[in-house]
């Protein structure tokens, strides 16, 4: 389950995380300097998410560089990553949301 994500700085204002990189470890994020336009993972934002860095990555098809912020996901966010898989049922979603709200 990924715990670190990279988000384009211009996407940080969205009401959800549109991650263009994701990894179990921060070194996995730091070691990857590329992303593909249109390839992303959408995650709900949570208060436990913290910014741990910033860097520039390159889009593979255009070779354009982009600044991204690296976030470490909070525990609740990691749990709610299941949402990104689009397989979770409404009951699970409701229970995850309740858990997030309790924190």
């Amino acid at each position: 389950m990924p715990k670190f994500i990279s988000v384009l700085t211009s996407d940080e204002h969205l009401n959800y995380w549109r991650a263009v990189q994701w990894s179990e470890t921060q070194s996995g994020i730091d070691g990857n300097n590329y992303y593909t336009a249109g390839v992303s993972m959408s995650l709900p934002k949570n208060a436990g998410d913290t910014k741990v860095g910033a860097k520039t990555i390159i889009e593979v098809s255009t070779q354009n560089g982009s600044k991204v912020s690296v976030y470490k996901l909070g525990t609740a966010s990691v749990s709610s990553l299941k949402l990104a898989s689009n397989k979770a049922g409404p009951t699970l979603i409701a229970s995850l949301n309740n858990k997030i709200n309790e924190q």
């Binding site: 959800y16 549109r18 593909t36 249109g38 390839v39 993972m41 959408s42 934002k45």
Partner: peptide, 19 residues
């Protein structure tokens, strides 16, 4: 409904938001 996540689209290149 919250969380208002987007519909995703998957092609040969991978998966992302339908924009």
């Amino acid at each position: 409904v919250v969380p208002k996540l987007p519909v995703s689209i998957q092609g040969t290149y991978g998966s992302g938001d339908l924009i």
